[in-house]
Design a protein around this nucleic acid. Structure first.
Lengths: 378, 378
DNA sequence: TTTAGATCTGAATCGGTGG
DNA sequence: TCCACCGATTCAGATCTAA
């Protein structure tokens, strides 16, 4: 989660799950059935899986597997249990492979509608995936319900999962908050459907029936991957995932069994230009910024020993000591510990709790840390 | 896997055992476990089931806000389940009873969050329920994600189901469209959480941790039940379903095992006043409104033979004939047929296409039909 | 009495590191 | 695996408090 990976952890991962990116089919669309295609990839090798599986449950009529193959009907009449079962088996198969290929700290995204998402959600939970959020893509311009028989089906659902309850994952909190005008990004995303110039067409007709908008993938990849990460899309279609991945400086691998879609995707992605390095940089959360001890500020003269620091209401006025500790009356402690003690709170962020005066202005001591960090960059 | 009862069989059963409303415990909250309680109800006896089952939240330790205060979490015993398997069994049990009690043309609503809704959705599909829509309740004021670790969980999901793929169901399309300012009601509903005067409190603390807003139930009941219908809520809590049902002139039955909730619900519902008959009347969809032939308007003097009718741009001016047909130049036809012919369109709604003058105003001829329908009601 | 500011709260699967 | 410690983190709306 926007963690700054420690050297120790990085080494452990590198040795335990040694997969060189060079050994992966980066920027390639694997032909054939996605389960078979994924079998050719090593364990723990991709950082993110984005999947837009088919949801042709085929209830009622003739029965085909979602991969297009014919169901071996013996004498059977098919009812919905049979077709749910086939869809469930298919879902379990591809999710199992995706889980194997995904790194322990990677994340899985699946998009679907009410026809299939409840089956997919239950199965991925059964497999051990841990749902972090379900995201609602609220369409600004959905197809109306022409017959007036139901509510206009105006959304689709995305599931975002880690490998397990205790698994780590990456979330670029600060980038999402920035993208959302300094408010936390919510679980409902308002985006138009894919149309206009973005929609791939061949001779006036759309190449793929369910092409997803690039804005959707943009948000998914910006939120949960880093530059250079590898993204796998087992149902690549016309390559929206690949196009956006390339634009954002991520690596990609696709699986797609239809020639037409593969050709269209390769052409499309070839035209795509990666953004500048500087454009891809996102706002960093404080979590991943280097740690600065308060003592370092004192040591380096950003805050002088003897400085008076105080809370917003000046209820407590403490003194900075030479070693970076604070003293209030008989009590002594770190900026966090003393703040916690005095308030009787479960925890305290000393950086924002304590203030000091600079040129007549009152600022949190975090301001001194920012100055220090700026100076360090040069 | 359980045997799926066919729609045909269900209908047969329903007709064999007709249930008088007088035999039902209307306006009562059944004590004890909801599965046991539902067993006391006859087959095919209620028109709608609305269920807000426990969500099976898996919460860790305490959660503090950035200001140090503690979040009052849902830690009640009724939300504790040891595993998915146990939760699934529980879900299958209550859904099975709900299915038995629900009429063949009734509908089921379930509300949940990502913790449980995928399990519930898959199981109800397995049982034969047919999802008509999934509805997203977008909260205007959700709790933020204090730790900055995920997207703000800003919605809950409702599933609306019929008894099966071929089953009939009721949807008050026109009422929903009217409620939504003459636009089709969408699958995403924007509503605030329950707070303020609506939130039941005892000595300053909330009676129930997850009381639902009345506006949510209002929309559910208005959309899919009729006046006099019986609504069953197997997880009655503090009785939001009952209160709104009573207000809207629907009958209700609840199940609730906590004394505290039952007492609060009875008190609350006693205070509730039913709306006037006239207020409950909703816009009738054209399907259930009596069909009116244009000829009947002519016959009854709402539009005189010889009246000139015309399209909005007055490109075509036709004459009403005594039998209700229209004449334009050499062409003659019904209001729909002639409109279609003249425009060269695949179809035409004559009621909105043709206009006439009344007291200097230009109105679509549908206005005359509305007058006629109003007169018919008296 | 009014208003601005402070406080409180809601179905929440809500940390990482090093010893 | 558990524990101590560091330190990052919130939005909208209702209600309460003080001026």
């Amino acid at each position: 989660m926007a963690v700054l990976e420690t050297t120790k952890a990085r080494v452990a991962r590198a040795t335990t799950f040694a997969v060189a990116k060079a050994d992966l089919p980066l920027g390639r669309i694997l032909d054939g059935d996605c389960v078979e295609a994924m079998r050719s990839l090593p364990d723990n090798s991709v950082d993110c899986v984005f999947a837009d599986p088919p949801y042709n449950l085929q209830l009622g009529g003739d029965l085909n597997r979602p991969d297009g193959s014919q169901v071996d009907a013996v004498t059977d009449h098919w009812d919905q249990f049979d077709s749910f079962k086939i869809y469930d088996d298919f879902t379990r198969d591809w999710l199992t492979e995706a889980r194997r290929v995904l790194k322990p700290d990677g994340s899985l995204w699946v998009i679907g509608s009410y026809h299939n998402i409840y089956r997919v959600g239950a199965i991925l939970q059964d497999l051990g995936f841990w749902i972090l959020n379900d995201i609602v893509w609220r369409k600004t311009n959905p197809m109306p319900n022409f017959k007036g028989t139901r509510f206009t089906n105006a959304h689709e659902t995305l599931l975002w999962c880690s490998q397990g309850e205790k698994a780590k994952y990456h979330f670029n909190y600060r980038a999402m908050k920035t993208l959302n005008d300094e408010l936390q990004m919510r679980s409902d995303w308002v985006l138009p459907i894919c149309s206009g110039g973005e929609r791939l067409k061949e001779g006036g007709t759309k190449v793929h029936p369910t092409q997803k908008p690039e804005a959707l993938l943009y948000r998914v990849l910006l939120a949960t991957t880093e530059k250079g990460d590898v993204v796998l899309d087992p149902f690549f279609g016309t390559g929206t995932t690949g196009a956006v991945a390339k634009r954002l400086g991520r690596e990609w691998i696709g699986c797609e069994r239809e020639n037409v879609y593969r050709d269209a995707a390769y052409k499309r992605i070839a035209k795509e230009l990666p953004l500048d390095e500087s454009a891809i940089e996102t706002m960093q959360s404080k979590k991943s910024a280097p740690r600065v001890a308060f003592g370092a500020l004192v040591e380096n003269g950003y805050i002088m020993p003897g400085t008076k620091v105080f809370d917003k209401k000046r209820k407590w006025i403490a003194t900075v000591r030479a070693d970076g500790s604070l003293a209030y009356d008989k009590q002594v402690g770190s900026i966090h510990g003393l703040g916690k003690e005095l308030q009787g709170a479960p925890s305290c962020n000393g950086w924002s709790f304590w203030h000091y005066e600079v040129d007549g202005d009152v600022k949190p001591i975090d301001a001194a840390r920012q100055l220090y960090l700026l100076a360090m960059e040069d």
